[in-house]
Design a protein around this nucleic acid. Structure first.
Lengths: 238, 238
DNA sequence: TCAAAAGTGTTAATTTTACACCCATGT
DNA sequence: ACATGGGTGTAAAATTAACACTTTTGA
């Protein structure tokens, strides 16, 4: 495929020969309950690199941007190709473009995603899940990227109903509180949590209950009228 | 300059031939007091395009990413080259990469900047200041980009001390309140505003006063210990 | 001395936080 | 019957919001 340079070159412009390669990567978060314990932790899938640079190290799933697709589409495609996952929540995180972050010049558009409990499927070979709190040394600058994505997640959980992106359709208030506790890393008062979320108008109570342990807990659904969170400039916002 | 492709190509990778061109643009905000009135408005500089596509239309200042510079540096350089301005506050906004946003495939890393009153200098030919609330039809998708930047500014003014990025070193509480009022588009109670900002610990009172109108107003400075705002993943955050 | 902005005081309304206590179910 | 998590009630504490009032200057 040849490219025609029909867009003008401003002063100091680059020429066609030094165009930069654009990669797209995604930090995918989900929750996992530890088998023995009742603790829930934030986990994410990483892909083992099979070539240099950083062969053998773990890296974020991703790939190169294709000329025929938008950035969001590239993120969905590359994470599906490398992990087999299809998260329902996907949002752009940041563009990383320091000169020395890779042996060759690469600008990475990084996304972050949330996987609901029911969206967790078997992943491709070479993919492994890691506790977000205890990551090994990753390839490139991916440790800093994950740290930033975690910071965004913790931040956003405070002012949007993004936590719902980690739960199945129906859930109890304890399920939801557990998500907040895992993400924020601290316990929340069940009574106050209930009132806050009830007053927020984001939940619709069903007439179904989850039974099994002790007193049955009412199941809730999302209120589809309320947006999960602002996902960037593409939303209507006015 | 030739490039060696030493980074491996993941499954579905792009080849060197369809590398995407990367542009960097910046939305620069500052405040302007209307001569006759006491109203303050948010204004931004735009550059008239001298070539196709969109020749004659107004566009955000920007240019092509150079292989030898990081994204932040590219934003500083291109906005200086196209406008002559050097804002003190600069933060990445979003990466735009829809396929049809330009005749040729361009991924734009967009920054937004705040210009302090004392940083406003004479600008280059072809640059004109516009009221952010009444923009003409801009080139490419730049109208949506400015809308998003404005939303970010209004949002961020609520939870960070970013408003200081629009003021000179020393300022009165009325100056600061005026910034908030211009950005948020509504009046604030002077008494409550004073207390909130005093309790936030972000201001240091000087022993100087601004005289001239009525009762002299104390001048304040920034508390340099407190960060203006989180500017992205590059800050220390833990 | 008067208008106007600077700055202080006070109180009501709202939200947050802490925690006591009742309810319903499986074991 | 009882332990446990589900769910309600209540009140102190902190924050926000509204507005009356005093102070200090230039004109």
């Amino acid at each position: 495929m040849t490219r025609t340079a029909s867009e003008p070159l401003p002063p100091g412009a680059a020429t066609e020969s030094d165009a930069t390669r654009v990669a797209v990567s995604t930090v995918i978060f989900t929750l996992r309950r530890l088998p023995g314990s009742d603790a829930v932790q934030v986990v994410l899938p990483l892909v083992r690199r099979t070539r240099d640079p950083h062969e053998g190290q773990w890296a974020l799933p991703g790939g190169w941007l294709d000329v025929t697709e938008g950035l969001d589409a590239a993120a969905s495609r590359t994470l599906a190709e490398t992990t087999g996952l299809a998260p329902s929540y996907l949002e752009q995180l940041y563009a990383f473009g320091a000169v020395g972050r890779s042996p060759t010049r690469v600008v990475s558009i990084v996304y972050w995603a949330l996987l609901r409990a029911d969206e967790i499927t078997d992943t491709v070979e070479n993919v492994q899940w890691f506790d977000a709190a205890e990551l090994p040394r990753l390839a490139f600058d991916h440790n800093e990227i994950v740290d930033y994505a975690l910071w965004r997640l913790r931040n956003k959980v405070g002012y949007s109903r993004i936590a719902h992106g980690l739960l199945a359709d129906e859930f109890t208030l304890a399920d939801l509180r557990e998500v907040y506790e895992a993400v924020l890393g601290r316990r929340l008062d069940p009574a106050n949590f209930r009132r806050q979320v009830e007053n927020s108008g984001t939940l619709i109570p069903t007439d179904r209950f989850r039974t099994g342990s002790h007193r049955p807990a009412r199941l809730y659904r999302y209120n589809q009228d309320v947006e999960l969170a602002d996902r960037g400039p593409l939303d209507a916002r006015h």
